[in-house]
Design a protein around this nucleic acid. Sequence first.
DNA 1: TTGAAAGCGCTAACAA
DNA 2: TTGTTAGCGCTTTCAA
Lengths: 339, 339
Amino acid sequence: MVVTLKDIAKETGKSITTVSRALNDYGDVSVATKELVHRVAGELGYTPNIFAQRLQKQNTDTIGLIFPTFGPRFSDPFFSELLAGIGNQAADLGYDLLVSTRAPGDEEIKAYRAMVQGRRVDGFVLVRTRRKDARVECLQEADYPFVAFGRAKGRYEFPYVDEDGLYGMRLLTRHLISLGHRRIACISPPPELMFAHYRLQGFKDGLTEAGIPTDDALLRVGNLTQRDGYEQAKILLDLPSPPTAIAACNDLMAFGAMSAAQDRDLVVGKDISITGFDNIPMAEYSHPSLTTLHQPLYQIGAMVCKMLIRLLQGEELDEKKILLKPELIVRQSSGLLKS
Amino acid sequence: MVVTLKDIAKETGKSITTVSRALNDYGDVSVATKELVHRVAGELGYTPNIFAQRLQKQNTDTIGLIFPTFGPRFSDPFFSELLAGIGNQAADLGYDLLVSTRAPGDEEIKAYRAMVQGRRVDGFVLVRTRRKDARVECLQEADYPFVAFGRAKGRYEFPYVDEDGLYGMRLLTRHLISLGHRRIACISPPPELMFAHYRLQGFKDGLTEAGIPTDDALLRVGNLTQRDGYEQAKILLDLPSPPTAIAACNDLMAFGAMSAAQDRDLVVGKDISITGFDNIPMAEYSHPSLTTLHQPLYQIGAMVCKMLIRLLQGEELDEKKILLKPELIVRQSSGLLKS
DNA sequence: TTGAAAGCGCTAACAA
DNA sequence: TTGTTAGCGCTTTCAA
């Protein structure tokens, strides 16, 4: 049988209230009583009924997280590492995490609304902010707390953690230029994603500061999958004057681009340089290993989660807007321009 | 403000009881009342308080899932695809999914006990069964329902879904033999994992039926990561008489093995054949693309979840033990033995 | 066909 | 320092 406060009360001869207060370490319970109650609770193997607590306290101790992902195959290492960071942090702080996945669009907003409506969660973690973000509007309208991984355009205002994509891509572009590359292509994410903007701008800035004009033919867009990296790289390699380096805006697309190059018997790192962004675990063990920008996704997840919980507990945040500098990891996929 | 049954009762002039029964479609409520109640509930935007329901009904409508994973970086596509299958199915059937990760060992069992103790979930999905599985013992002892992905040794008895690893690896080994390979290595998972046993046995059976003796030097063990595939393949390639084919027991190790071969300027698919198991999305876009066995992880997750929910709802399972045949996907990483 | 009342396990205002 | 009482929102007897 499940042990309740009542059982402890009966066993100790105290009232349910006293037992409750003893267990919650209220100041107005005698030390002797506290000790007794704690001991008996331990012996009986008491665990509070979390649903009764939540009903009473009118909160859920739960965080909502809806991954904006397409299709049923959910295997982007980017998301899973982020998830681990958020989930473990939430667990450490005594919160549950309610996760689901929904492709961006109406169904997604419906899912948010349903959670808000039913007060299923105390707040949300938002992933991958967009230029015009219906999720943000929905939550702000309902006055629901959230913290985002990703910044917003001017009109929105909310706490976030983000990586400095502009800085990172500029660093990377400089690196490629320092290797002698001049015709550098970029496969960027769909422009409605906020981070696409920054990364692309960083790329362009890198070219500009070296006095290299941007060639629009070398600017492609991919939806962040390996497949798209592959397809877009093929298009680039088919150009009359193909690039000598391709900067993909995430690792998965970079792997796809590597495949495309290797299909044409190009040696990546020699005949062509290819770079990524994220430094997922696989980047170290691809062949060749991938030059990329390291984003501490696990830590970012943990940070976002912790910020949200702070907010939920009514604390002030020291920093509402956190921008992290990604670190350039040079590996074998980028090399000197072949003369 | 949040709308409760009370509000609907006030609005309709009915009692809370009647409103509750109307909303739950009880037979003893007049059609007119039902219509009225439903209409008003809709207008007011009523959503039941899930915690009150759970407190009353004494169930959680929640499924527990603890991933047995090492370290904080949780990026195995195997797990994330399984998670999607389980999570989406649970959501479709109105269940929540409580997820966490814990490395196999004491902390893991503690996590299970805590969930059992606190009656936090109605049942569990168990992933990657082991030869001696403390999780199984813990749950059976507490008489807690669960369904596993993976079989058990004789002493345990529980419902599961599993892939027929023996069949799959035999198929694969035959394929390699048909390409002319005779010195075939296998990198298998740690032997305490149940599926390691079946896959390795399938491999050995494949050799035996072709009259090829097993060479213990060609049998290596890796912990399912890319890194381990890389390390173990290096060892194999350093042998005085190295293998001409390596069958890794999952895709991640196969990628690692490919890297190791490519580091030595071997052309995978020509100079050496390398194969995997799982067919994660990446397998199609690696270079060369990976010959592997397809495991419908998303569907398996969904099946396991559905079985568990059936069980929780007191239904009988048509099949308590489901064994799926993996499908051989021949791609470019396996090729004719170079003469 | 409906409603009153009890109770799920817990917390908190108030009184003693 | 402790206990009484009420109530969180819901379901479910039982009686009308």
